[in-house]
Every structure is written in structure tokens, then in C-alpha cells.
Write a protein that binds this DNA or RNA. Sequence first.
DNA 1: TAACACGTGTTACTATATAACATTTATCGA
DNA 2: TCGATAAATGTTATATAGTAACACGTGTTA
Lengths: 133, 133
Amino acid sequence: MITRGEMWQAEILRVLNRSHAPVTAYEVLETLRETHGKVAPTTIYRAPSSLADCGRVHRVESLNAFTAYQCDRHQHTSILSICEECGSVEESVAPELLDEISGLVGRSGFSPMRHVIEVHGMCGSCSMRKLQA
Amino acid sequence: MITRGEMWQAEILRVLNRSHAPVTAYEVLETLRETHGKVAPTTIYRAPSSLADCGRVHRVESLNAFTAYQCDRHQHTSILSICEECGSVEESVAPELLDEISGLVGRSGFSPMRHVIEVHGMCGSCSMRKLQA
DNA sequence: TAACACGTGTTACTATATAACATTTATCGA
DNA sequence: TCGATAAATGTTATATAGTAACACGTGTTA
Ligand SMILES: [Zn+2]
Ligand SMILES: [Zn+2]
Ligand SMILES: [Zn+2]
Ligand SMILES: [Zn+2]
């Protein structure tokens, strides 16, 4: 049985997957309105957070936007590299780096629960393009 | 000579320094309105970004808020650990970790310009308090 | 079926951030 | 010193982001 909520999750995943760059909640909203008429922000915000919870969507904190996971459903924290030229985002996975960070902040007794690691810069292909120009 | 802009920067720094936790732009705004009457959001947003530029204030991306640097004026990127219990933020500095992250995302040709590293969790004193309770 | 719990829809609102333009202040050559 | 010009700051309005509160419907249980 497919609930209405799961229907929205699927729709939203489809929108996110069509874009190589992160998409804000309101951009998703606009897209869905084209095909579904009136849709409320709440609908959009509820679904990504449940999608994030089940490891299919990232919230990109430094952009206030969402992006679909690049690899299949998983639970690990990703390091996101965000190209400020073309908007594309890549995921990197490095548990040992997360551990190092946890160790560092843990020296003062801090217990990490969630890591936000987002690197802004320029992606390889944009750098190439800039060089040629 | 002290410009109006520098005056605002100083005021805002004072507000940020009085709080151990990050402060949103609109919280700063409210505080300043108590003493200065009408103040526009623009005023608040301009000053922190120039303060951030000169290495005195962090923008905490995952909170949409600002916090004063804990050590004296500096330019290095900090790792922020944010207690979700009491709101306090600590800075850690670890250039070698940043280098590792840069190396990792650089494998695909990505050139990092700005690192956002924010760890959410629970600080030492809050953990203590929880244990005792 | 009545009662309830829960998921979803709807409305209205709060919070966050910036664009565009007006005004003031600094700079500098005439 | 005096405009002319450029830069910084003030002001207004608006765009974008996010949530609270409650209404409604649907499925479950007794
Ligand atoms: Zn993955
Ligand atoms: Zn790019
Ligand atoms: Zn420092
Ligand atoms: Zn704490």
C-alpha cells in the first residue's frame, strides 16, 4: 500500500534526481505545482526530512537546499563539495576523517551526533573551462 | 576616524560577545533596537559579513546565526562544535584536518575555497549534568 | 458502528535574507 | 573652498525559507 506521503516522497526524489545541483524546498514546490496544482510548503518540508531520515536525501546546510544521495540508500555521513560556479555537488565518504574530527572536538568532552561538512569551491570541469577561456 | 559602519560592527560584536551561544541576525536586530530605535535588517546583515571577512565573526551555516570568534582576530577556518542542549559553541583549529579534507575532495579536481565544518552534539558539561540527573 | 490514533491537507504566520533605490558622507581636482 | 563624483550607509519593500496550529480523512480497534 502506497500512502500519500510516500507518493510525495517519490515525486520529490524525482525532482531532486533530475537536477545535478541542490534544489531548494520552494523550487521543488514550484515544480510540483506545475503538475499537481496547489501544494503547500509543509508538504515539501515534511517529505525531505523523512527522506533525509531514511538516508536518501541530504539537506545542504550552507545552501538551505536538498540534494538526492548519489549512491544508493545509505546512512553514512557524506562530505559534500559544492561548485560555486556550476552548482554541482559531489559526495565523498571518509569515516576515518569523521573519526578524526570527532576525536578533536571530543577532547573537551563534546559528544558528536551529526557532522556537517560542506566544502565550497570550484569543480574540476569548471576549472578546466576557466583555464581554456 | 570611526565610520557609521564601524560603529555598527562594534555594537554587533558587543551583542555577540555577550552571548555564549550563536545569535541570529534578527536577535541582534532586536537588541540593537532597544538602544538605537529603528534599525533595518540590512544594517545587521552587512556588518556581520564584513566582520566575517575580517575574521572576527563566524556565520554558523547550520543555524543561520552568527557567533563571535573565541580567540583574537584571525583568518583560519574553525571547526565548530555546537551543543544542541545548551546552544554553546566551541572552536577547534586543525589545519591538517582541513588539508586532509581538501585532499579528499581534490581527487576529482575540485578546488576548495571555503570549508564549512560544524559538528552538532552535546557538550561536556551538558553530558555531565544529564548523567547526574 | 463508535471511538480513537495517526497521517495528511490547509491556513496562516514567523523567520531569514536581499534587491533596489534614496541619502549621506568621503574624496579630489578645479 | 567648491562642486562633481564615487563610495558607504540608510530605507523601503519584497523575496525566500520554515513552522505552528488546527481541520480533515483514513484506517484501526473494541
Ligand atoms: Zn553514499
Ligand atoms: Zn562546476
Ligand atoms: Zn581561532
Ligand atoms: Zn551544552
